[in-house]
Design a binder for these strands. Structure first.
Length: 590
RNA sequence: GGGGCCGUCGUUCAGCCAGGUUAGGACGCCAGAUUGUCAAUCUGGAAGUCGCGGGUUCAAAUCCCGUCGGCCCCGCCA
């Protein structure tokens, strides 16, 4: 019994045809003389009718069906009685009057049903992922993921890209995230690392003359998990030779437009807006601003310079700044709510959070009101209105931006300022090359150490390296970093200089990146590229709340797979073969 | 490494603050009834080591300590 149709396609146009469907029993409604079975597959649901008057032996078999049994049925497509059409179901105008039933497999009673509105814990869903995957929502998300991969592959092939695989067993890289290590049996005591990204290999491919490379690449990072972070994740990774920043931005905008249009009929402005890193940080306190709502940070440093409030003045005098958020209608906040905001600001790293309510008559209501000149403040914040609440942070720029940026997001959520129907994509460009890391007392690369500086900023590398900007670019959507890339360094002298500034010694550079430095000496073309997070892209496109919903077999926050129970201990023999001894107390598996 | 929330029949929750007879509801499951349901309905039934360990107490799901697991966040994620 081979199926002739799937469970989502039959309609009134098929009436009187004899069809065969196969799928899972989604529900059974037993009315005695007649039994209704909903049969489900990836495509939909169809109602099957077993009538004891039409076929008593078949009805008796149907009586034994239970949820999630796998069945095949043959029968005639019939229009339902007029009052029994189900408008909620695409196939709701028809039903199959069965005359053959094949029970292909039975099922034990299961912990939850394969319905979208099933209320169950995520750990149970992960343990029984095969059931969870039967739910229409999960099926749609994986279909969406497949569709996006397909569109991407087609698009890039049309643009002369070669799809090339890079190694999964590779060399541990020193900077950046923690590596997943894989012991080598034939080289006792030595380890491969799983790639955090194909970065170095794709640069080598450019030097190898491949010109345009892409890969839908699995990447691994042994860091703690979050809502939008998994230890293994997938990137749409690409690299191009003989291009500049504009070429790559153009290409990716075209791809993103195609994906959003084809899958969700979402249109973006052309070109996408851009903010420099400095603008993004200054206005939104983050390098991945959510532009679905405004609520910008307001610079009050000029006002603060001459005001009587010492906290503000001192912040300016010690090279810091004062910025403010104007919370519309926030004057109605209770003292308790404001106290909670102050605590939150402290958790975010602020020393304090000053606040001012502007009452309906324009007067200031605040514990620091006596230090503030009302006219000067209103002049400094022309967009503040009576009824608003002003929140101030005075500190070094990094703290001010971090605290107010996060308060902006928090209040945007709480006050429901975020328009969930909007899609706001933008590029953030001109990232600084380095930032100074206080703990290690050295410069660290903001992007990665292979990122090329702006040509006009090259002299700054010697004089003021912290002011040098790079040819890096991040694509941001609704406050999530969708991807980032850069034009790379192709000059071996420049690469050495950057390693030097990062305090990576010649020996270390040679030992870790010798192959890259050699390759750069061997005729490296100018090149650049980008990597887009596929899982996050699907999460946003599919409007699901967690990256785990876009990955068929994700890990929990402890980086474990609840279905297979990986990771797990291994036999002493396996360890011995790998020259490994563990120091944990957990006994090895026998 | 740190902070928060959670853990009770197969599932999802109530009960815990204020300890006390037989731990309760809904869904699911099992049996019976039922010829137009699509959250089917009706009747009956089974089902729990209250995550685990220890402590306090005459008595612990309930209070205390520890521990394990799940989720969210900070740190971390070039």
């Amino acid at each position: 019994m081979k199926r002739s149709h799937h469970c989502g396609e039959l309609s009134l146009t098929h009436v009187n045809q004899t069809v065969t469907l196969a799928g899972w029993v989604a529900s059974r409604r037993d009315h005695g003389g007649v039994i209704f079975i909903d049969i489900r597959d990836r495509y939909g649901l169809t109602q099957i009718v077993f009538d004891s008057e039409e076929n008593a032996p078949l009805h008796a078999i149907a009586d034994r069906l239970r949820n999630e049994y796998v069945i095949a049925i043959t029968g005639k497509v019939s229009e339902r009685p007029e009052e029994s059409h189900n408008p909620h179901l695409p196939t709701g105008s028809i039903e199959i009057r069965a005359h053959e039933l094949d029970v292909l497999n039975e099922s034990i009673p299961l912990p939850f049903t394969a319905e979208d509105d099933v209320q169950t814990s995520e750990s149970l869903r992960l343990e029984y992922r095969y059931l969870d995957l039967r739910r229409p929502k999960m099926q749609q998300l994986l279909q969406l993921r497949s569709q996006v991969s397909h569109l991407t592959r087609n698009f890039l092939h049309e643009h002369q890209f070669l799809e090339i695989e890079t190694p999964i067993l590779t060399k541990s890289t020193p900077e950046g995230a923690r590596d997943y290590l894989v012991p080598s049996r034939v080289s006792p005591g030595e380890f491969f690392a799983l790639p955090q990204s194909p970065q170095l290999f794709k640069q080598i491919l450019m030097i190898g003359g491949m010109d345009r490379y892409f890969q839908i690449a699995r990447c691994f990072r042994d860091e703690d998990l979050r809502l939008d972070r998994q230890p293994e994740f997938t990137q749409i990774d690409l690299e191009m030779s003989f291009v500049d920043r504009e070429d790559i931005i153009q290409l990716i905008e075209t791809l993103i437009r195609l994906i959003f249009k084809e899958t969700k009929q979402i249109e973006f402005p052309n070109p996408l807006p851009r903010l420099t890193y400095e603008e993004a940080m200054g206005r939104y306190g983050t390098d991945k601003p959510d532009l679905r709502f405004d609520l910008p940070l307001q610079d009050l440093s000029e006002f603060a310079k001459s005001c009587d409030f010492q906290v503000f003045r001192r912040a300016i005098e010690s090279g810091g700044m004062v910025k403010s958020l104007i919370i519309p209608n926030g004057a109605a906040f209770t003292r308790n709510r404001i106290d909670n905001l102050i605590d939150t600001a402290k958790e975010f790293g602020a020393k304090g959070l000053a606040w001012v309510k502007i009452s309906e008559d324009g007067k200031l209501d605040s514990s620091i009101a006596k230090f503030l000149n009302t006219e000067a403040l209103r002049a400094a914040l022309p967009s503040a209105n009576p009824g608003d609440l002003l929140l101030f942070v005075a500190d070094q720029a990094r703290v001010v931006h971090q605290v107010l940026g996060r308060l902006r997001l928090l209040l945007g959520e709480e006050l429901e300022l975020i328009d969930r129907t909007r899609w706001e994509a933008l590029w953030v460009v001109d990232f600084p090359m380095f930032e100074y890391d206080d703990t290690s007392q050295r410069h660290v690369a903001l992007h990665h150490p292979f990122t090329a500086p702006h040509t006009e900023d090259i002299p700054l590398l010697d004089s003021e390296p912290l002011h040098a900007k790079t040819l890096a670019y991040d694509l941001v959507l609704n406050g999530f970093e969708l991807g980032g890339g850069s034009i790379r360094i192709h000059s071996p002298r420049m690469q050495e200089k950057v390693f030097d500034l990062l305090k990576i010694s010649k020996e270390e550079a040679k030992e870790k990146f010798g192959f890259l430095l050699n390759a750069l000496e061997s005729g490296a073309p100018p090149h650049g590229g980008i990597a887009l997070g596929l899982d996050r892209l699907i999460m946003l496109l599919g409007q699901t709340e967690s990256i785990r919903d876009t990955i068929p077999f994700p890990k929990t926050q402890k980086a474990q797979c609840l279905m297979t129970h990986a990771p797990s201990s291994v036999s002493p023999e396996q360890l011995q073969e790998l020259s490994i001894r563990t120091t944990t107390k957990k006994p090895a598996a026998s």
